[in-house]
Write a protein that binds this DNA or RNA. Structure first.
Length: 476
RNA sequence: GGCGGCAUACCCAAGUGGUUAAGGGAGCGGUCUGCAAAACCGCGAUUCGGCGGUUCAAAUCCGCCUGCCGCCUCCA
């Protein structure tokens, strides 16, 4: 039975979708005003795994990740770069998709852009005004702002555990003389000259941030959804406000399970522009394989903070190499001739029988990926132990190794820490390696070493293994 | 000031009342080896930030203290 930690209740609860086997998930996506950083990437990887595991567990999942393609930051960048906001948004939307593809993040079922849902937002805002939860105030020459009346919704603060009085005291909110309460937030913003604008009952303007998610969730998934996710920082005010908008409008519960992932930290602190410690995902991908990045991200529980530095990444990289080599070693062994044993296979048999149960148990516990990975490592270790007995396993051992490979591929694939594509060794390199084997047999070691150097220049490494065989690997 | 989270070996990191405190990295010892590398085996926390309490039993529950971090303003 799957259990998840729900921010709304602060507890780990058993997961029971509203209308099983359907599961509707919405996870806040990027605001496309720049390249995404590894913190954004972490959120996408965490929810990618959550989504894939729910599918694996037999649910019919509808997964939605939005693109915020209109907001203050985009407008600001556009002004700086002297181009249209839509152009800026397009550039970074594209960049985002490229990173997602590299990272092996499966495309969401829907990837709505805010600007495609303006009419839905307008109608939602109108409804809130009619119901007395929002009010329009004069703003610019183009029209009025519409603000949400936070005091009009009794449940305001229930997600983040804040109460209005305290919020008002500590409020560092922007000054707005027109606000009835300091915690009121903007639903619709009248445009200023030169800004993007859309027609509305309140003149020309653009949507506030929080309303877009509310509108898209309702349009695509309906009034009530099973899971809403995002980074921990979105709890307040973004998700609190979304909740207030939707529940005030529909009178129905908006989200059953709120899931929030922790931050990636640099030297124990969050990434921020002001600290100048932003690590872009595309730069990380330049230094490390995508599988290594996922391996690193998933080596911590999604709700924890995760400290990111080069050393940790390099450790993850070594760990991943070791894990990944297991796959190749199995494939090599299966492709080779049968040995004639004897081999001790008991532990491997047990490990194969246990892995699925251990993996599921870990993942069922609020998607405990570190524990799930440990389950895979346990199996991988037994595999290596068997392979080290003899590089040419017996037919019986091969059968077990085949089973192990299947399990490792299945679960490692779900986490996205395996690589589907083996680096293929060019024929030229293969021939050189063969020649070297021959030279070695003739004890012409000097010539053999020369070949190794040649192979190295071609980007590969030859490693000798037991039984007079060798292994060709891409150079590290 | 209000709210929340975290503190486990050299590093990362599971563990949420009860057998020997997962796993990974690094390290050390060994096996193997023309060399190199790899691989495999073995070793490593009598102890879970500190002090009290509850309990037959606590890293796990409660209280206090210390330290770090996040949110309360845009933020994954």
């Amino acid at each position: 039975m799957l259990r998840v930690t729900n921010t709304l209740t602060g507890e780990k609860e058993s997961f029971q979708p509203i209308t099983p086997p359907q599961v509707k998930i919405y996870a806040c996506g990027p605001t496309v005003y720049g390249d995404i950083h590894i913190g954004n990437a972490r959120k996408e990887v965490n929810f990618d795994v959550i989504r894939k595991y729910l599918v694996f567990a037999g649910y019919q999942v509808t997964y939605v990740v939005n693109i915020t393609d209109i907001d203050d930051k985009i407008i600001k960048i556009a002004a700086e770069e002297k181009r249209a906001a839509s152009e800026v948004a397009q550039t970074y939307t594209q960049a985002y998709f490229e990173v997602m593809e590299k990272l092996g993040v499966q495309k969401a079922d829907f990837q709505p852009k805010a600007t495609d849902f303006i009419p839905d937002m307008v109608s939602l805002i109108s409804g809130l005004v009619e119901k007395g939860h929002a009010y329009a105030v004069p703003s610019t020459e183009f029209g009025k702002d519409v603000l949400y009346d936070s005091k009009s919704f009794q449940g305001y603060g229930k997600l983040s555990g804040k109460n209005l009085e305290e919020l008002m005291e500590g409020a560092r909110v922007e000054k707005n003389e027109n606000k009835k309460n300091p915690t009121d937030f903007v639903l619709w913003k009248a445009s200023k000259p030169g800004e993007p604008m859309w027609d509305s009952p309140w003149g020309k303007g653009r949507p506030g941030w929080h309303i877009e998610c509310s509108a898209m969730v309702r349009k695509i998934l309906g009034d009530s959804i099973d899971v809403h996710g995002g980074g921990i920082d979105l709890i307040f005010p973004h998700h609190e406000n979304e909740l207030a908008q939707c529940e005030a409008f529909t009178g129905k519960p908006y989200v059953k399970y709120w899931l929030h992932n922790g931050f990636i930290e640099i030297s124990g602190q969050k990434m921020s522009k002001s600290l100048g410690n932003i690590w872009k995902a595309k730069d990380a991908l330049g230094d490390f394989r995508p599988e290594v990045l996922r391996y690193f991200i998933l080596s911590a529980h999604y709700r924890s903070g995760l400290n990111y530095d080069r050393e940790s990444l390099e450790a993850a990289s070594r760990g991943w190499e070791e894990f990944n080599l297991t796959f190749q070693r199995i494939e090599d062994a299966l492709a080779g001739p049968d040995g004639n044993g004897p081999m001790d296979l008991l532990e491997l048999r047990l490990a194969i029988d246990e892995v699925e149960g251990k993996f599921k148990e870990a993942m069922d516990d609020d998607f405990n990926t570190p524990k799930a990975m440990a389950a895979l490592f346990d199996l991988a270790r037994e595999v290596r132990r068997v392979l080290s007995q003899d590089a040419r396993p017996t037919a019986g051992a091969k059968s077990l190794l085949g089973e192990a490979l299947e399990k490792l591929n299945q679960f490692g694939g779900l986490l996205g820490i395996t690589t589907a594509q083996r680096v293929s060794v060019p024929k030229e390199v293969e021939e050189l390696a063969q020649t070297r084997l021959q030279l070695k047999a003739e004890k012409k070691f000097k010539e053999a070493d020369e070949i190794r150097a040649k192979v190295s220049a071609l980007g590969f490494t030859i490693e000798d293994v037991k039984g007079g065989q060798y292994r060709v690997l891409p150079k590290k």
